[in-house]
């Protein structure tokens, strides 16, 4: 089935590298994810103080989305009906482990709302929606591995039912020191046809 929708742009964050549409825009030698993402945030002139209170998954998803949406030069005065459809394997397990640590010992019991709120994967969608003023459709899915078919089907359903004008979708995985973000924007215009082969190709870029 040929799709009438297109992939306008895409962003990958993995292996200490941030790339936009296949071109490297930041790279360093940091061994630690939090060091790397902070350095990338600074280098890419993100300038958003709330970034520092986010958990690791939100930092990853937020930066990928910010790189992509900044490049779109959206008119912030107008409303942008961009749906967000994210997926991963680990859900929010990285922060789940932190909250679990804080309650494991009754002698050392310190649950914190600032940690607990991030024990849901869709919080990163909330962070992106706040920054870019997106009052749009959003959902978070969990799969064992990257699932291009599901993203394709669900994105097409949102666009064809006019629930959104554009869809920001992809995979944002964070589990300990393993991290990987691949986000792409699907719209009516563009040169890359929105199909499973192309999604997979860009994912492996």
């Amino acid at each position: 089935m040929s799709s009438k929708y297109h992939i306008t742009s895409f962003c990958n964050i993995k292996n200490n590298t941030v790339s936009l549409n296949g071109s490297v825009i930041y790279n360093d030698e940091n061994n630690d994810f939090l060091e790397f993402i902070k350095a990338a945030y600074k280098s890419l002139e993100t300038n958003y103080a709330k970034f520092f209170k986010m958990d690791a998954l939100s930092k990853l998803a937020f930066l990928a989305a910010d790189v992509l949406l900044k490049n779109e030069s959206l008119n912030q005065e107008e409303e942008n009906n961009i749906a967000i459809v994210f997926s991963n394997k680990a859900s929010s397990i990285d922060t789940d482990r932190k909250h679990q640590e804080s309650i494991q010992n009754k002698e050392d019991y310190f649950p914190s709302p600032a940690v607990f709120v991030y024990t849901l994967p869709n919080i990163c969608i909330g962070e992106i929606s706040i920054k870019h003023k997106l009052f749009s459709e959003n959902s978070f899915f969990i799969f064992d591995t990257f699932n291009p078919q599901h993203l394709l089907d669900y994105t097409n359903s949102l666009l064809s039912a006019n629930k959104a004008e554009k869809v920001l979708c992809g995979w944002v995985e964070l589990d300990g020191e393993n991290y990987e973000a691949f986000l792409y924007l699907v719209t009516n215009n563009g040169t890359i046809t929105h199909n499973k082969q192309n999604i997979l190709k860009l994912y492996n870029t």
């Binding site: 919080i123 909330g126 929606s129 706040i130 997106l134 009052f135």
Partner: peptide
């Protein structure tokens, strides 16, 4: 059906 974000606060 519809599912829209507040774009306001995370908690």
């Amino acid at each position: 059906e519809g599912s829209c974000n507040d774009a306001n606060h995370i908690s």
